[in-house]
Design a protein around this nucleic acid. Structure first.
Lengths: 347, 347
DNA sequence: CTGAAAGCGCTTACAG
DNA sequence: CTGAAAGCGCTTACAG
């Protein structure tokens, strides 16, 4: 009933009648370099197993300065994109013998800063961060302090910090081209009012594509606040539909997509008859909506895995200043919501 | 550019010209008990702040045996119920000065065991676990080893381990009663093929309610495998609808609900005209489905918060054997999918 | 009121 | 081939 006393290094050492040095060396796979006899090696390994010895990682950490912990700061772990991303990261980290501590910043750089401090205090070996507006200085400071670091999903182009993310420009280009191909002209886009790379690139991809198609006059971009966006999305849609008479709208995040669908439903707007829609990221809702929603799919798994690879490389090679960049390609999954329905137009 | 050398306890001590003992005592708020002069106390605190001293938690951990880390094992962090639960837990833990390490077991007790070992190695002060089939012995062993522990969302009734969860029996009772109240008689239920308390209680609530209403003949329970359930759910629904001619179905988890809706859509079954539906947990999909889905809502926030409260209490009072049980009440959110539509029956 | 010293459980130069 | 000893950065009896 009483907690068993843990088996220590010295316990296995004394049970063999040898110093802790030998045991430590053998168990860390450095027997050869230290010319420990094979017999001894095997005896140590067997004894350690028999006694169920497992090293105290705290002590090893204090001594060696390595915790095998990675800190991951997303904006909101309850957002399905980030929870999927986090699982991927957890899995890949585990393969490389690291454990992940997650935390959510809520797109607030003050909170992010506190979380970073907390994670560093916990002795994490490196950080994976989804940066938010206002956090550029924080990231820059980490970089200057030589803390192994990788940005995920978004990045600051002016910093020499590595990152892994989607080709966001390409993402909205794919969507816009598809809509134009369907015969739509008056195509609009709703994005968050943010300076982050992912948002800006998504906007840019759309604008560029519209201009190339000679549709500059139809460029309509609505920006909504990242906190509690629903009301603003409603207003934006109302304006776009009733004043601008747009034929199609591209939602640039999963949350905007979902809130946008709520709004369109409440307004009684039919998709795609009245308006064509393209969403972002994956969702069961897109598939099961009365008019299944075409969406831009991110390669979440690769984004996460590559981020881990970059970070672990940095942790193992501290001092080597290398900016690694991984940009992954989007995929457009075409459903009914973006197809021109030649039959159903009531006019 | 070079990583700044961290300020240590001895740095602030020597900068004042005092021993590390004094600094440590003051900074740990034990000045009074050790009769340190007020002047000295204040000087120490001020100097530590000025020098931006922050303690090395690893060292403190090694010395004191406390990490202020909590391990949380859910079945799948990318499941929206668990990601929401985890955020709640993270938040409450932070208020109590703990950091959470999450991991996903995938309903596999072998994986769970490995994750627990890993978390203990990392020096967590306690564990929060969503147990899965086959894990009773693992949980029992942790309990016997006096490891602070709380089960979340599910529990083993035969163990004296504390837990926080939904009143699952009540949950399906609410749903069944509501359907009976609407005039449905032939009501069925789909659940996972699992021995866990949450599943068993959800089944029991339904059965009990049907019997009390004199509808024993209509009790129809379909069990589906927890891994890749879609195909089995499809078969179950086909059988229930085409052979048993059921009028209503209760889905007992969020994943079953969503996969069930996929199946019903593919089968071309109209809700609620052909069949009434009640789902479990919250989802934007339920609200935005062509026929909004009535659902059983869990008080996720309270479940998470109470679990943290219980665990931290255990961590702080190790040795006191107390089984704390928190059972929270469900809410039925009524939408169109479970209402008897008197107008539309085509017969 | 305050300091010298031990110790948490490891790893790793250093010496032999 | 192997051991004694220092040290990672703290906290806490113990002594004065």
């Amino acid at each position: 009933m009483v907690a068993q006393k843990r088996v220590l290094l010295k316990d296995v050492a004394s049970s063999i009648g040898v110093s802790t040095t030998v045991v430590s060396i053998v168990l860390n796979g450095k027997a050869k370099q230290n010319r420990i006899s094979d017999k001894m090696s095997q005896l140590v390994i067997k004894t350690a197993q028999d006694m169920k010895y497992s090293p105290n990682l705290i002590a090893r950490n204090l001594r060696g300065g390595k915790s095998q912990l990675i800190g991951l700061i997303v904006t909101d772990i309850s957002n399905s994109f980030f929870s999927t991303l986090s699982r991927t990261i957890e899995k890949r980290a585990k393969e490389l013998n690291y454990t992940v501590i997650y935390a959510s910043s809520d797109e607030n750089y003050h909170d992010m800063k506190k979380l970073i401090e907390m994670l560093l205090l916990k002795g994490v070996d490196g950080l994976m961060i989804v940066p938010c507006d206002g956090s550029e200085e924080i990231i820059a400071e980490l970089y200057e302090n030589n803390i192994p670091l990788v940005m995920v999903e978004r990045f600051f182009p002016n910093l020499d910090v590595s990152f892994s993310c989607l080709n966001n420009c390409k993402a909205t280009q794919l969507a816009t081209q598809h809509l134009i191909g369907q015969g739509y002209r008056n195509i609009s886009l709703i994005a968050y009012n943010s300076q982050m790379s992912n948002v800006r690139d998504r906007i840019e991809g759309y604008e560029k594509c519209m201009k190339q198609a000679g549709l500059s006059d139809f460029v309509n971009i609505k920006l909504v606040n990242i906190i509690n966006p629903k009301q603003e999305i409603g207003k934006a849609l109302d304006h776009l539909i009733n004043k601008k008479h747009v034929e199609a709208v591209i939602f640039t995040t999963n949350t905007i997509s979902i809130q946008g669908l709520y709004c369109l439903n409440e307004m009684g707007i039919k998709i795609p008859d009245k308006i064509a829609v393209i969403g972002f990221d994956e969702s069961d809702l897109f598939n099961l909506f009365y008019s299944p929603i075409t969406y831009i799919k991110q390669p979440v798994v690769q984004i996460g895995e590559e981020a881990v690879n970059i970070l672990v490389d940095k942790i193992k090679n501290t001092g080597i200043m290398k900016k690694s960049i991984v940009i992954l390609e989007p995929e457009l999954v075409i459903m009914k919501s973006s197809l021109k329905n030649k039959m159903s137009n009531p006019l």
